[in-house]
């Protein structure tokens, strides 16, 4: 395995672990998204995704379940993309 591949598998593992949350709903949304769609994001969107992973679980839950909307357009768009990928 070359260094680049090794690094990318590590990044994915780390990312997958950060997607392990206290709520099943978030596990399904975040893990499903990382498996299926994360690689298709732009560098900026990947940064937003990483920022969003630092949010508390309850806030993520409220955003994803439509109880709340982010005032940050980047976050808001990402939330919509993740929601759409979950129901496919």
């Amino acid at each position: 395995m070359n260094i680049e591949k090794k690094m990318s598998s590590r990044v994915t593992s780390e990312l997958r672990w950060r997607c392990r949350r206290g709520m099943l709903e978030l596990d399904i949304l975040l893990n499903g998204f990382v498996e299926k769609k994360y690689t298709q994001l732009s560098a900026d969107q990947k940064n937003t995704f990483n920022e969003v992973l630092d949010y508390p679980d309850q806030l993520l839950f409220d955003l994803f379940l439509g109880h709340m909307e982010s005032s940050d357009n980047n976050v808001s768009e990402l939330v919509q993309t993740i929601r759409q990928s979950a129901s496919v």
Binding site: W17, R20, R21, G22, M23, L24, P56, D57, Q58
Partner: peptide, 11 residues
Amino acid sequence: KVFPTRSHTVA
């Protein structure tokens, strides 16, 4: 094994 505030109590 996860960051404490991501424990299942949150659910």
